[in-house]
Design a protein around this nucleic acid. Sequence first.
DNA 1: GTTAGCATGTAAGGAGTTACATGATTTT
DNA 2: AAAATCATGTAACTCCTTACATGCTAAC
Lengths: 206, 206
Amino acid sequence: MPSKGATLELAVLGLLHESPLHGYELRKRLNLLLGWTRLLSYGSLYPALKRMLRSGWITEVATMSSSVSRRQRIVYQITPAGTEFFTSEITDAGPAAWEDESFNMRFAFFSRTDASVRMRILEGRRSRLQERLDRARALSAGSDRYQTELRRHATESVEREVRWLADLIEAERASQDRSGAQAPRPTRSTTAPPVVPTTDLSTEIS
Amino acid sequence: MPSKGATLELAVLGLLHESPLHGYELRKRLNLLLGWTRLLSYGSLYPALKRMLRSGWITEVATMSSSVSRRQRIVYQITPAGTEFFTSEITDAGPAAWEDESFNMRFAFFSRTDASVRMRILEGRRSRLQERLDRARALSAGSDRYQTELRRHATESVEREVRWLADLIEAERASQDRSGAQAPRPTRSTTAPPVVPTTDLSTEIS
DNA sequence: GTTAGCATGTAAGGAGTTACATGATTTT
DNA sequence: AAAATCATGTAACTCCTTACATGCTAAC
């Protein structure tokens, strides 16, 4: 049952969908794509690749020591089963898809879903965050200065993400209307710029 | 060696520092304080309390079935050893303190540190984030629309957090100058409002 | 020739989640 | 009397990290 947090696997499949890659390179791209806070370590990547091999989602590819680099490396390629799994997962717009990590993942591969799925995911995510805000507002704040400031900050951030999502939804709707699908770059309906979800920004540290 | 991610333990000690509490209540406050994304579960809280008992940081308190609620509950209290550990941890302004979770924790308990420590932590955090931005900017973006948008979003968020920190630092410096320590609420030197760190906003779901 | 960075892995363990299990007390 | 919610715990499992271990190749 691949139901829960198979985030890493999905990300790998998403990247391999574009072109075959070897582990080391995969890690770099993964860190660009999702690993903003803590960098993904080899200790989780390689075992994950092994699991995926066993699941039949990827295969090793003949490395053929070609023209340039004659380095020993194991190149992985996505299989039809892998493609099928990937597609079914990112197409599933259920509650699991509005969760932080999960949402980011799906968003990153939105190009491979169709408009109705994107819409459902964006809207689901937005109401998920809205609920959090409502629940948080229903609770009294502590008296501590710094804790208050932290809460204020957190709340504002979520509010911003909600606006961001609202803009994206609007943009999606607009591009659905003028049949020829346009870029999803939001039109900044509101004043201020958006916020990030849960992630942070960073890359290779090695 | 209590060096790494003893975030939960520290948060518990921080709360017990104010008043003795029982597990159930502790969880609620913990979720208010730090557990914004995923709620803390009993499955991690209770074992943590056991560990802390063994470490001698907390003790059980005679529950004396007093006036109101005669409910069976185990009330915990911080010990001198616990206080000492807590203080030494939140006073440590080393690199571990600029990490996301760790930073939030320390920030929440800033009232219990002195100005110089606060300053070092805020500045450390800021340059940590600045580095991430620099590294991210040094890398070419992918061609995918949505991935580009996600990156833009993430970058903007970090930039905002940097501004937030800059404002806090300024406020701290200012209140250090006019000797009588004032509220750290920043003076919004820049135009836009701030962003949240890594966390999300949410509370009790149960 | 030596250093830096490419490349792949394993073992141990930390930190938390879900699901299970149980029961008391308060509210309706 | 039933339902909600307070209250405490355990066991199995997931996912990831750190630290270790190894060796190749490109550049200086």
